[in-house]
Write a protein that binds this DNA or RNA. Structure first.
Lengths: 223, 223
DNA sequence: AAGCTGTCGATTATCGATAATCGTCCCGTG
DNA sequence: CACGGGACGATTATCGATAATCGACAGCTT
């Protein structure tokens, strides 16, 4: 699966390059849900052969971004709200358990989280939701990483939170919910972690993700 | 030498066929951990081109069975016991939560589980561990499926329990642990489900998986 | 002998072309 | 007019061949 850290420089591998471009286009709406990604068409556009396109598409399929049927092509998968909620339920479990496993919380973990939180705060004040989400994801991924459970991290990564998160944020914005609340919830969480309060921290993680997940409730209400 | 299996069933898709064969070989030890799977070599053996081999390998990579480095080939990944234990922790979370979500337990679910359990019982009496594990996996997968959470099921599926389970069973056998205990634990679980006892059932699921997971404890002791 | 450099063999990544498959449209039939 | 049968176009799956890359080793320099 794709790694969070992308090599900025010289790509030795066409398919990685293509994959990243395709992910970008799906994210920014160039390819809306349902768009068929035709191999030869893309091959011509990127001036490569069909092979690297196929491999990139298969990689996207593995991460659930697109789905393909035999001989019938590959299409961009839409954001199914019910499925979103379900995936947030899993994420909640993963992160809550991670908070328990990560205890006691080491200074370098706390320092990292504090750094991300600071960036989140700055981003929200600058009304830069892209920067907010980038750092929020780093924050949460770091939490899962600190559990020491590689399977947790692999599954967390596989769920493509950079995509789901952006959709959630857009929804929350549409619902008029401010990111400021999320930042303060993260602050509270970090406070509990600093106090080595496992139960408290777990509770905050749950509350936090429940709030984000509420973007996908049928009526859109937080209740 | 060419493979007679190629003619067995009319596969529309070579890569699926090849993938299944490769999985089988990794499972039965034909390809021990660390074996390099060379594309052209396999291509000649299966009498196909390199392309479908590559696609099959990439699929295996996606499910963690093998890992590949750029230009350095694809190798069979070994069974890391620590990682096994970690994956069982996730499985435990998934199944415990599924038991909670699936309530109240419908008659058709209970009937399916009872059917699988019967097969498990028969298999153990016939000392057929293959049949046991097949049905045990059906039992557990059905449980996760009944949660109604598609993400849960997708993640559960992605963890390749047919492989991990077999390894666990082999270990348990080496440790002299009988499958009979596992069958009776499943019986107890089904009893709790029939009684609509969510807490009790959850507890049994945990105990059950903990016992299997113990195959990967450092010393091999159940404690 | 240690270090550097260039070449070679093995293997993967990519190419350009062909075969297989699916959906559709046209046509004849009832 | 509804309906099945085949030809066609579009697209994917696979092929056979070539280019790119890596690891190792030999030969040269010091």
């Amino acid at each position: 699966m794709s790694q969070p850290a992308a090599k900025a420089v010289k790509r030795v591998c066409m398919r990685d390059h293509i994959r990243d471009i395709l992910v970008g286009r799906i994210l920014d709406g160039t390819y809306p849900a349902g768009t068929q990604l035709k191999e030869l068409y893309l091959a011509r556009e990127f001036d490569v052969s069909q092979a690297p396109i196929r491999e990139a598409l298969r990689e996207l399929e593995g991460s659930g971004l697109v789905s393909s049927e035999r001989f019938r092509g590959t299409r961009v998968r839409g954001a199914d709200f019910a499925e979103m909620r379900e995936s947030y339920e899993l994420r909640m479990m993963l992160e809550m358990r991670s908070v328990a496993l990560a205890a006691p919380y080491k200074p370098d973990l706390l320092a990292d989280l504090a750094g991300y939180l600071r960036e989140m705060d700055t981003a929200v004040k600058a009304d830069d939701s892209e920067a907010y989400i980038d750092n929020a994801l780093r924050f949460h991924r770091r939490l899962v990483e600190s559990s020491g459970n590689r399977t947790f991290l692999a599954v967390w990564d596989s769920l493509l939170w950079d995509i789901r998160g952006r959709i959630a944020l857009r929804r929350l914005a549409e619902m008029g919910k401010s990111l400021k609340t999320l930042v303060s919830m993260h602050k509270a969480l970090l406070g509990r972690l600093r106090a080595q309060d496992v139960a408290g921290a777990t509770e905050r993680v749950q509350a936090l993700l429940a709030r984000v997940s509420s973007a996908f409730d049928q009526n859109g209400a937080t209740r």
